[in-house]
């Protein structure tokens, strides 16, 4: 079986995978990083969003072998030394979730979306989160959370 090597949440990892193994399955089944969710399995819902070299992508729509040599960040890698990332904190403060299933993907997409932009309009946030589906909240508090998170991140 082929092997793949990448950096996940700052740690070098190597694993055996099949050609067809999706990145999301490598993360969940081999590395037990189950914060990254499989929602629709058709690359529509965004629950599987992780960062590939700092950019949000859908890990159900990429082969593990395509991530050879890449830096991957999952939801587990956002908090630093027990302190939540400002975007995670903003989701908590604004109650930007109900059941929580879509939340890891929402947070990862939001962090990528607001990079370099501390002031986004509601419209920009709503369009920017096109690739993430939530079936509980009606999105209002998610938009509030992303706005607050973007301000807290200060354009970083």
């Amino acid at each position: 079986m082929p092997t793949v090597t990448m950096t996940v949440n700052g740690k070098a990892v190597t694993g055996e995978v099949e050609g067809r193994t999706l990145l999301v399955h490598f993360l969940r089944d081999k590395l037990h990083l189950t914060g990254t969710h499989v929602g629709c399995d058709t690359a529509q819902c965004g629950a599987c969003t992780v960062h590939l070299n700092g950019k949000a992508i859908k890990s159900c729509n990429m082969l593990a072998l395509q991530a050879e040599g890449a830096e991957i960040t999952t939801i587990e890698g956002l908090a630093q030394n027990g302190t939540l990332h400002p975007m995670q904190e903003a989701f908590r403060d604004n109650h930007g979730l109900q059941c929580g299933f879509c939340t890891p993907g929402m947070v990862m997409a939001a962090v990528s979306l607001v990079k370099g932009k501390s002031n986004l309009s509601d419209d920009e946030i709503r369009h920017g989160l096109d690739g993430n589906i939530c079936r509980c909240t009606g999105y209002h508090n998610i938009v509030k959370a992303v706005k607050a998170g973007a301000q807290a991140m200060g354009g970083k």
Binding site: G46, L52, K55, A56, I57, N61, A109, S112
Partner: peptide
């Protein structure tokens, strides 16, 4: 095209 994540791949 597509959405934020799709455009990055």
């Amino acid at each position: 095209i597509g959405d934020h994540q799709v455009r990055q791949r």
